[in-house]
Simulated assay, not measured.
Amino acid sequence: MDSPAPGAEKPCIFLLFGDDTHAMESFVHGMIARMGDPGMAELNTTHLDGKIASDEDLRTAVSSLPFLGDRRLVILNHPLARTQGAEGKKRFLALLDEVPPFTALVLLVEDQPFRGDWDTLRAGHWLRKWVAEAGPRALERVCGLPTPGDMPGWIQKEVRKQGGTISPEAARALAAAVETNTELATQEITKLLTYVDGKRAVEAEDVDLLCAPMGQGNIFDLVDAAAEGRTANALRELHTLLEFQDPLLVFGMLTRQYRLLIQAREILDAGGGAGEIAREMNQRDFVANKLVRQARRFSMNDLKAVYHRLLQLDEDSKSGQNDLMTGLDIFVAGA
């Protein structure tokens, strides 16, 4: 499943965290692909949610022998939900110490940047310390979204990964269209490479023809209306976006916008202004000015509460508790 140096100890615990959920999903999909036959891989893969699974569920999953294979893969979302209180943390660490070499336990933690670090798994967090001290038994992977300035390079790398080529101008044009949405960028790259059919590099004209921009202005208008209590206007903006975009992409746009506002609010709270936001967040001046105006409508606690509501909406839609379209309506009505 993994590819350490010959004779080296394979990691048993993988800690993946950050705000690039697409990167985390890709990492996990790569692990599953390396398990060989898809049918056997499915038999040897267990998905658990730390908010629902019991300690016994987790202990059984990690200790069960693989079926006709070398390793079992256990994927645990929301692992920190199993660590409430001193006793919960103690039990969880004991379980990590007992993970056998035939099991790969993947811990997935969605997080967001905050004050130059991460909101939950900060540099001194006990779980990150445990991973660092575990040596070759554990591996940490930070999955952070690229900055707008890094996005063209990320796109060029992904194009090469998919077996194609793209001009620098086209990479910049696609970055402008998708912003830092790596999942959307991956989809658009696949579409562009299919269009050119491997006969030539993707050019800026192809991006203009096939890739619609995400619609930054409408997102600003939507958040403005929601912040001011103009619910009818906010819902109208939402439904306009949904006429042209898939609900999943609109959700990504909303999530990104509130993440930008958290970063902008942090800079404002530290005494900065539009200039610092433009420079530190690598945004154009007109976007920085809009972020200042909008971030001042919220406190940091308000923004973090809204962001956590978005994370809950994502969880509910993935678990089938609520469809995303309805969830977006409810979110905007209560924002």
Rank of each mutant, 00 (worst) to 15 (best):
G229R: 06
A41R: 04
A61P: 04
H308R: 14
P146W: 09
M40S: 15
A225W: 00
A81F: 03
P148E: 01
G215V: 07
L184Y: 09
Q162S: 06
I13P: 07
P79Y: 02
T60C: 02
A335V: 11
F220N: 07
L184P: 13
I166R: 11
A177R: 08
L209M: 12
P11G: 00
F244K: 08
V178Q: 14
N289T: 04
N289S: 14
N322E: 12
K318L: 10
V196A: 03
V223Y: 12
V74Y: 00
E276L: 05
F220V: 03
Q156V: 11
L328P: 10
N181M: 13
Q257H: 13
L328W: 14
A234N: 11
T186H: 11
K161A: 10
L127C: 01
W154R: 09
M24Y: 08
K199G: 05
D97N: 13
E87H: 14
P213S: 08
N282W: 02
T186D: 13
M35E: 01
L260K: 00
Y195L: 14
R122K: 15
V159G: 13
P146C: 09
T120E: 03
A185L: 02
D314S: 08
I262F: 05
K51F: 05
A295K: 03
T103N: 08
M253Y: 05
H29T: 08
H47G: 00
A201I: 10
K199S: 09
I262C: 04
R236I: 03
K10C: 10
G30C: 02
P136I: 01
L311T: 10
A226E: 10
E9W: 10
D37F: 12
P6W: 14
K290M: 03
G252V: 06
A305I: 05
E266R: 09
P148V: 10
I32L: 14
F114R: 15
Q283P: 04
M253E: 04
R115N: 01
W130S: 12
S3I: 14
Y195V: 12
A225R: 06
A5D: 13
R265G: 01
L58C: 01
D111E: 10
E315D: 14
K304F: 02
A278N: 05
P213W: 03
A225E: 03
G327C: 11
